[in-house]
Write a protein that binds this DNA or RNA. Sequence first.
DNA 1: GATCACGTACCGACCAGTCGGTACGCACCT
DNA 2: AGGTGCGTACCGACTGGTCGGTACGTGATC
Lengths: 198, 198
Amino acid sequence: MPGGQRTPSATQERILAAAVKLFAAKGFDATSVAEVVAEAGVTKGALYHYFTAKEELLYQIYRSLLAEQTAQLARILDAGGDPADMLRAVLVGLVRTTAERVDETAVFVREMSRLGADQMAQYRAERRRYHEAVRALVERAQDSGRFSARVPADTVVLIAMGVVNQLPTWYRPDGPKTPERLGNEIADFVLAALRPTS
Amino acid sequence: MPGGQRTPSATQERILAAAVKLFAAKGFDATSVAEVVAEAGVTKGALYHYFTAKEELLYQIYRSLLAEQTAQLARILDAGGDPADMLRAVLVGLVRTTAERVDETAVFVREMSRLGADQMAQYRAERRRYHEAVRALVERAQDSGRFSARVPADTVVLIAMGVVNQLPTWYRPDGPKTPERLGNEIADFVLAALRPTS
DNA sequence: GATCACGTACCGACCAGTCGGTACGCACCT
DNA sequence: AGGTGCGTACCGACTGGTCGGTACGTGATC
């Protein structure tokens, strides 16, 4: 298997979808491969034809989620503009994609520690870059005097990320608030906290 | 086994401590009973003498953590005073106890879904009460005009709880910030967000 | 001598992963 | 048009090992 990934077959995606659903509901270890294939309507043979091990299901889930989030951040950063607007865009976008993919996020947050040492290092690096980018955004605005520097930028980022990561535990797609609405409320909150005291 | 709990023996506590440590590090399912007893320096016989099942280790961990948090909240609410001060006290206290018991919190947050239906209902009820109490605090202050009502009170609470629950993923006891410091930063943040615009 | 607090040996269930096979399409030759 | 060779996609019975839990023994204490 030479490094690259090809476009996944329908069977592959059904297996992944089943895995996400079950892992989110019951946890990785508590879900047997037999259950995954039953949910997907395929057999063990099919699963092991496409994936080398149960853990690889996790990697694939992580991969696609992180790729999407990183891409979105890059898009917003590249567009440039007012730091406050950009921060809002980042938060709203993050909440939206997290809401759209609650199960993936839930699996990721809960089962992160299962990553092997290499994958973990890679993830940490990516998260660090993300973190730093957002922190820079906050700091830039704080330095310009338009934001209050009362709360350190890294704490702000930690809080923002924490909220999003916890979202799967209480967000309900059929709840009264749309993801956009929620994202904006959270952005309101963060931006309000950053308002200068003056 | 008639409902009540008695003062735990030393062996019992060593088993629990070992379980917390291992569950936090590797997850509940990925930790075998054999590993727990090895870490605790006892045998399976001892463990099953005190606990009816592996899952009961989880219940005990949850129990003591929730009991402490509920007690603390009650203490603060009973003391009364200015809503803003009370909210700060709640947040600082929550962060402090969470920091003191990172492993327990990590286990709880990650493995919550393992609770049986009954226990889950019970927990939900307790969390709801907690949530409502804090929300009432925020709302009371918002109604009095001393806090901004821009962000709905329930979102505020969700954010605050989210931060605390995520804390185990990034808090390091040997880090530069003490729990008090962190708790106050988080409280600063929340209270700043609630400042009226005027 | 009965109860408590464990230790030791063991059991049955389950589970991730394997492996020998099948079905089928496609390219190439004749 | 038919045959042949081969690669891909899958099937499902089986296995080696692990794990939660139990049965029973034993020494100390009351």
